[in-house]
Design a protein around this nucleic acid. Structure first.
Lengths: 248, 248
DNA sequence: GGCATTCTGATTGCATGCAATTTGAACATG
DNA sequence: CATGTTCAAATTGCATGCAATCAGAATGCC
């Protein structure tokens, strides 16, 4: 009778969820190896399942998968980071465009409650603040009830989490909280243009606060450091890195 | 020695590619069942591989996957279709923003050649025209050399193919060709604002030409027709379908 | 010491097998 | 005839096994 009892959720989905959280909370740092055996054993599942989960995570861009090689947590390049934020800005502008003036009292309350939770976590570790801030944005996306928007915003937000974890110095996410509050106010008031601009500048600010250009290219991988030297040897003054990051 | 010989590409990847093409060319229509056994056998692979491929395609939104049920080619709803195009517009505006004035002669030539190919296919079946037009946009995205942009634009473009296949009446994609040419010209001239606007209106036009609102809700699935009646019974005047599709 | 080579354990790619679930058709019932 | 029930075939969920490949330590050579 009661089909309310949703069939037990995929084992693979559980592993995905766990890995996602671990990655965005930086428990698993970029580059960390993720062997299928180990994962399966850890979650009481077989390699087949772990493999499937890794495939999904790879499709989300959270892990890198190369044939015959152990999967690793993705290590976004700095340029990818910038591009990712550019995309995120446009996606989230769409979100607030749809939501402005359309939220009922309950939804507004839920948003405010979430921001309060963010405030409550201010003392704690950075990774938790980052996760909560990210979840605020996902919460917004979910209110559009647009499956595609929800999927894309969630995915790219998680990716941004990974990016922040990778590149940001110990930063204060305090400002984010007040910016979130401003967003809610503008949403409630239904001022479309204002809320789109607020979102735009909020995300730009997050990116700028966190994404310090790596002067010394972030130790980790030797090949990355050597990459520029693999080029045939630039003729023009070496600095100009192929335009990108347009107007800003 | 010569590692040029790239290690043989995943069997799963091959199946993915094949299914993608079949779906976007409407050889596999929305709703078509995709049993793991049959797929595996058809491609000389085991069920495990077929399953993996289906998982990837599901992550791309081309197939729908429900637990313990046969996978089917995705059937986008009309609302999803609209949302998808909204997202696509913003993504592709980013693409041309990055490319305007940055393409070398060879790249411009390649683009023009592609449009010529589109023109050459004008007499043929709609599905081929649609595929070629889609590939033009993906070609553009690839020129950004931004992995994330490439992935997102490719994915959403394929989805739009599926959508067009689902909703469009027998339409003439002739106008698309001249619009593509205009895009190339503006890109070459490096007029950023103009090319962004061109892309915006081009995609809007594609959507409008193809996405006729389904007055009679497209026969197919009875449950879809009944869906609105499952709501607890609206208090406000029943028509207003939750805003969406803002300014247009 | 520096550098190429060999070899072995670790790890993935894939197929197969079994239990659980769904599908839908035959059958029973009012 | 419409509706509910039963049951077998079809199909998925998952684990396991084997061959192919990789990683990196040990080895040999200069």
């Amino acid at each position: 009778m009661a089909p309310t009892r949703t069939s037990k959720p995929d084992k693979a989905a559980i592993i995905c969820q766990a890995l996602r959280r671990a990655i965005i909370e930086q428990a698993l740092k970029p580059g960390t190896k993720l062997p299928e055996d180990a994962l399966g054993e850890r979650f009481g599942a077989s390699r087949t399942i772990a493999r499937h989960a890794l495939g999904q995570l790879a499709a989300e861009g959270l892990v890198e998968l190369r044939r015959n090689r152990i999967a690793v947590v993705a290590t976004p390049s700095w340029q990818e980071a910038r591009d990712t934020f550019d995309i995120r800005i446009e996606l989230e502008r769409l979100v607030v465009r749809q939501l402005a003036g359309q939220l009922d009292a309950g939804q507004i309350a839920r948003l405010r409650a979430h921001v309060d939770a963010e405030e409550g976590a201010r003392g704690g570790p950075d990774t938790v603040s980052i996760r909560l801030a990210t979840e605020f944005h996902i919460l917004l996306a979910e209110m559009t009830e647009s499956p595609i928007l929800i999927r894309y915003v969630s995915e790219i937000s998680y990716r941004c989490c990974l990016i922040l974890a990778t590149f940001s110095r110990p930063h204060s996410s305090d400002c984010a909280i007040s910016e979130h509050r401003a967003l809610i106010d503008a949403l409630e008031a239904g001022r479309v243009d204002e809320v789109m601009n607020l979102m735009h500048h909020h995300l730009e600010a997050v990116a700028d606060r966190a994404l310090v250009a790596p002067a010394k290219p972030r130790g980790r991988d030797i090949m990355d450091i050597l990459a520029p030297y693999a080029e045939p040897a630039p003729v023009a003054p070496a600095g100009q890195p192929r335009v990108r990051a347009i107007m800003r």
